[in-house]
C-alpha cells in the first residue's frame, strides 16, 4: 500500500485537510457569521418572480463555481494527479456534484431550514421558480440529516475525499491505482476518527445511494429543462456545467 506507516497516514490526513481548507470556497466562520443575514420577504418574492430559465441559469452558475472549487480540491489531493487523466475525469464527472452536496451542509442552517445562496440565507421557497420543488426539498433534507452529524471541517474533508476517490466508478482505466488511493484515504479517515473518538460517525454517514439518487434527480430535471429551453442551456449555461451534466 502506498501509505503504510502511521506517519504516512498522518501526512495524508494533513494533506486532505489542508487541500479542503484551501478550496472550501467559504470559511465556516463566515457561513456561521452570516446566519442572521436572511433574505427579506421582498427579496424572496423577487427570486420567485424570476423566470424559470433565469433561475436555472443562476443556479447553474452557482453550482459551477462550487464545482470549480471541488476540482481544485481534487488536484491538491495526494495521489490524484498521479492517476491517468481519463480516471481523473471519470472521478470528477461522477463525484464533483456529490462533493458539492456534502459541502452544502456547512451552508445550511437547521434551526430555520435555510441555506446560504448569493449572499444571504433563504429557505426552499427561494428556489420556487426552478419548478423542481421535490429535488430542492430532497437536497434540503439531505443537508438537514448531514448537519445533524455535526461533522467537523476535518471530517468533511476526509469524507469528501472518499466521495471523490471511489474505485467503483464505471469507466476507470487504472482501477487498482484508484483502489489503493481509496484504501489509503479510508485508513486516514478511520485513523482520524479513532484519534478524535468519533468512530460512531461512520455508521451514521448517508448511504452512497442517497447521493447518487440526488445526482440522478438533478440530471433528470436538467433533461426536462433542456428539452423545453435548449437555446438557454446552449447559450447561457456555463461550459463546465454542460460538460458535466448535459
Amino acid at each position: 500500500a502506498p501509505y503504510a506507516s502511521l506517519t504516512e497516514i498522518e501526512h495524508l490526513v494533513q494533506n486532505v485537510c489542508k487541500s479542503y481548507r484551501e478550496t472550501c470556497q467559504l470559511r465556516l466562520e463566515e457561513l456561521l457569521r452570516q446566519r442572521a443575514n436572511l433574505f427579506s420577504r421582498e427579496e424572496v418574492s423577487s427570486y420567485q418572480r424570476k423566470s424559470e430559465w433565469e433561475m436555472w441559469e443562476r443556479c447553474a452558475h452557482r453550482l459551477t463555481e462550487a464545482i470549480q472549487h471541488v476540482v481544485e480540491f481534487a488536484k491538491r489531493l495526494s495521489g490524484f494527479m498521479e492517476l491517468c487523466q481519463n480516471d481523473q475525469i471519470i472521478l470528477l464527472k461522477a463525484g464533483a456534484m456529490e462533493v458539492v452536496l456534502v459541502r452544502m451542509c456547512r451552508a445550511y442552517n437547521a434551526d430555520n431550514h435555510t441555506v446560504f445562496f448569493e449572499g444571504k440565507y433563504g429557505g426552499v421557497e427561494l428556489f420556487r421558480a426552478l419548478g423542481c420543488g421535490e429535488l430542492i426539498g430532497s437536497i434540503f433534507d439531505f443537508s438537514h440529516s448531514l448537519s445533524a452529524l455535526r461533522l467537523s471541517e476535518d471530517e468533511i474533508a476526509l469524507y469528501t475525499a472518499l466521495v471523490l476517490i471511489n474505485a467503483n466508478r464505471p469507466g476507470l482505466q487504472e482501477k487498482r491505482k484508484v483502489e489503493q488511493l481509496q484504501c489509503s484515504l479510508e485508513l486516514a479517515f478511520h485513523h482520524h476518527l479513532c484519534k478524535t473518538h468519533r468512530q460512531g460517525v461512520l455508521a451514521q454517514l448517508p448511504p452512497k445511494g442517497r447521493l447518487r439518487s440526488l445526482c440522478s434527480q438533478h440530471l433528470e430535471k436538467l433533461q426536462v429543462f433542456q428539452h423545453l429551453h435548449p437555446i438557454v442551456v446552449q447559450a447561457a449555461f456555463p461550459p463546465l456545467y454542460k460538460e458535466l451534466f448535459s
Partner: peptide, 14 residues
C-alpha cells in the same frame, strides 16, 4: 469531449 475539465486539470497543480 471534456475540454474544460482537461484544461482545469492541466492548469497547474495549485
Amino acid at each position: 469531449k471534456h475540454r474544460i475539465l482537461h484544461k482545469l486539470l492541466q492548469n497547474g497543480n495549485s
